[in-house]
C-alpha cells in the first residue's frame, strides 16, 4: 500500500537528552494512525519533524515522497494541520478566517465550515480570541474540513476540551475520514478518544517504539493477567510479562502471551500461583499495561 508518511531512522536529541533513536515508521494511505506515548516521549517532536518545524539530528522524513523540511506549496496544500491547543489566528473572527484561508486552497469547501459554525453559540463578528477552547476547536476543525486535505495531522486535539466537545470532534472527524478515505496522523493524551478514531497505533516509550500495529490486534492480543500468590512467591520477571504489580496476595501483569504460555513462564520461574485468569482490555488500559503507570 502507498505510504503517505515515511520516516526512516529518525534520531533526535534536545541538548544531551535523547528523545528517540532510529525511529522508523510508515503511515499507509487511507489509514488513521494514532501516536501514543507518555508525556515527554516525543509525540509533539515527531509532529514538528513531520511538518518541517524541526530538523532531526539524523534520519529522513518524507511526506508524499518529499522531504518534510522542504515541502513544496502543492504538498503543503494536501496536508491539513491542527496545532496543539487548536491555535489559530485569534485576531480574526470566523468570517475573516474563512475568507483568509479560502484564498490558498482551490478545493475550499466553505459549507462544512459554516455548518459547524452554525452550531456554536457565537456572534458572527466575535473574535476567536474571545471564544472558549471548545469553540476554538470547532473553528480549527471546520477549517480543516473546508480545506479538504488528503492527509490530516492533528496534534493533541483533545487538549483543553470538555467531554462534550471531545466527543463532537471525534464524531465529526470519524465521519469525515471514513467517508472520504483520508489519511490521519493523530496524537492525543486522552486514549479513550483515540480508540473511537484510529485504525493503527504507534506507541512510543522513552527513546524507542514499543509497538506499531492495528488497535484491533493490540486489544485482542494484549491481556491483563491475575493470580493469587502462594507461599510468598516473588513477582514474575520473564520477558513478555509487562509491569507486574502486587497488592496484598493478588498479582497482576500484562502480556501478549496466551494463557498456556504464561503458565509455562510462571512454572519456569518456580512461581507458585492459583486462580490464574486473564481479561481483555480497552485501548487505554492496554496502553497503561504496556507502558506502565509511572
Amino acid at each position: 500500500m502507498e505510504s503517505v508518511i515515511t520516516c526512516k531512522n529518525l534520531t533526535h536529541y534536545y541538548g544531551n537528552r535523547c528523545i528517540y533513536e532510529n525511529l522508523s515508521f510508515e503511515v499507509p494511505k487511507g489509514r488513521v494512525l494514532g501516536l501514543l506515548g507518555k508525556n515527554g516521549t516525543g509525540k509533539t517532536t515527531t509532529i514538528n519533524i513531520l511538518n518541517g518545524y524541526l530538523t532531526p539530528r539524523s534520519g529522513d522524513c518524507l511526506m508524499f515522497g518529499e522531504p518534510s523540511s522542504a515541502l513544496s506549496p502543492d504538498t503543503k496544500r494536501r496536508i491539513g494541520l491542527l496545532i496543539e491547543g487548536h491555535i489559530q489566528y485569534s485576531f480574526m473572527n470566523i468570517q475573516q478566517i474563512e475568507k483568509f484561508y479560502s484564498q490558498f486552497y482551490p478545493n475550499w469547501k466553505k459549507e462544512p465550515y459554516y455548518e459547524l459554525m452554525s452550531k456554536l453559540k457565537i456572534a458572527p463578528k466575535q473574535r476567536i480570541s474571545r471564544m472558549s477552547c471548545g469553540q476554538r476547536s470547532q473553528v480549527a476543525l471546520g477549517l480543516i474540513l473546508a480545506q479538504d486535505p488528503e492527509l490530516l495531522i492533528l496534534d493533541d486535539f483533545s487538549l483543553g476540551l470538555d467531554p462534550g466537545y471531545r466527543r463532537l470532534f471525534v464524531d465529526y472527524m470519524n465521519e469525515y475520514v471514513r467517508a472520504q478515505n483520508k489519511t490521519v496522523f493523530v496524537t492525543s493524551h486522552i486514549i479513550q478518544d483515540m480508540e473511537r478514531l484510529i485504525d493503527d497505533c504507534l506507541i512510543l516509550d522513552y527513546g524507542k517504539i514499543l509497538l506499531q500495529e492495528s488497535i484491533t490486534d493490540f486489544v485482542r492480543d494484549f491481556k491483563r493477567y491475575h493470580f493469587t500468590q502462594q507461599n510468598g512467591a516473588p513477582l514474575p520477571q520473564a520477558e513478555g510479562l509487562y509491569h507486574p504489580e502486587q497488592i496484598r496476595n493478588k498479582v497482576e501483569f500484562h502480556s501478549f502471551l496466551q494463557q498456556r504460555e504464561v503458565e509455562q513462564a510462571l512454572q519456569q520461574q518456580n512461581i507458585e500461583y492459583a486462580n490464574l485468569s486473564s481479561e481483555t482490555l480497552t485501548l487505554e488500559e492496554a496502553f497503561i499495561g504496556l507502558t506502565g503507570k509511572y
Binding site: 513544496s72 506549496p73 503543503k76 491547543g85 491555535i87 489559530q88 489566528y89 490558498f104
Partner: peptide, 17 residues
C-alpha cells in the same frame, strides 16, 4: 501575534515557500 503560541507555524504551513 505571530510569535504568541507560535502562530508563525500556521503562516509557514500555508502553501507558499
Amino acid at each position: 501575534p505571530e510569535m504568541v503560541d507560535k502562530r508563525l507555524k500556521l503562516t509557514m504551513h500555508l502553501p507558499v515557500r
